[in-house]
Computed example of a mutant assay.
Amino acid sequence: MKRHLLFFSLLLLCQWAVAQTVPYGNNPAAGKYATVRGVKLYYEAYGTGPPLLLLHGNGGSSKDFQKTIPYFAKRYHVLALDSRAHGKSVDRADSLSFEMMADDCAALLTQLRLDSAYVLGWSDGGITALLLALRHPEKVKKLAATGANLWPDSTALMPELWQQMKRGYQEGKSQTFTDPARKNDWKVFLLDWNQPHVPLSALGRIKAPAFIIAGDRDVIRPEHTVAIYQNLPRAWLWIVPNSGHATLREHAAAFNSKVDEFFRARSILAPAR
């Protein structure tokens, strides 16, 4: 019995060590580029099974899914994407919108000859996931969105974040950015300052089952998260206790398990009206 326990302990230790050494977000063994819609998109592919598209937040990259990829790669073909203007993706355009990024996702799936995928989005990635389901319903099997908002103001965002964004806008709006990197950072900032603009009524057109998630101390107002859930035809809601915006990091084990449960559920009951 002791030998078996020692063996499994060593096995778990080895798996943990491997997970720690994988350079997610900058992994030559898994990284690929796809040119879609005039943009060179970087993504990393892991595992086999049904396709699962991972979408990160503002200013982030596929590296943000270090605690997500190892779990889902056991059961899914995980595609961790760097959105346009983020990470290792190359985007020289002046404009940026959530609609662009949603259309990029659909084009990428088409180029990879994938009819549809499960989608998991965090923050801006959650917004993109909702817009992907709206604009390209055939591409989304189910979606999970954590920390997403539908419009950019103090009715959707917590006051602290909104004040921080207002200060950032005031400081940056009069500057002339000659450094391409800073110009790109400003473009990414303006994405959340100016967008999205998705009316609650539009959510009724989403056909894919949705899992709406937020932390109980998220930067998204809880009533806004609940309103998103209430306006979706088929949805689950989870307000994660003792969690901020980074639900998938702060409570990785529970988060991964619940999202996987949602993806694998055979039926999604409509919420009570």
Rank of each mutant, 00 (worst) to 15 (best):
M158T: 10
L120E: 10
K166N: 15
L200D: 02
L12A: 14
E250D: 14
G172H: 07
D153C: 01
V198N: 06
D82C: 09
A73C: 07
L237K: 05
E138Y: 01
A202E: 05
A272M: 08
D179I: 07
L130K: 04
K141W: 00
L134H: 07
N58M: 06
R113K: 15
L41Q: 07
P209H: 08
M165F: 10
G121C: 13
S174W: 12
S62G: 15
Q175E: 14
Q20A: 15
L134M: 11
D64H: 11
P196E: 02
T176K: 14
Y42A: 10
A214T: 01
A253W: 04
V90I: 12
D153H: 02
A227H: 03
Y229N: 05
G172V: 01
L120H: 12
F65H: 05
R37G: 03
S95W: 10
K187W: 03
G215D: 03
A30G: 06
L132Y: 01
G125A: 12
R273D: 15
L108Q: 01
S9G: 14
L237V: 00
T110M: 02
D192Q: 11
A210V: 00
S267T: 11
S97M: 08
A156V: 00
R264Q: 15
V90L: 12
S267I: 11
Q111L: 13
P137N: 11
D260I: 01
G215E: 03
Q164H: 13
V226L: 15
F262W: 04
Y118E: 06
T128V: 12
A214R: 02
K63F: 15
A30D: 08
L96W: 05
K88M: 07
F189Y: 12
Y169K: 09
W162F: 15
S9V: 00
N194E: 15
A156I: 00
R37I: 01
Y42W: 11
A129D: 05
I213W: 02
L200I: 03
P271S: 12
A272V: 01
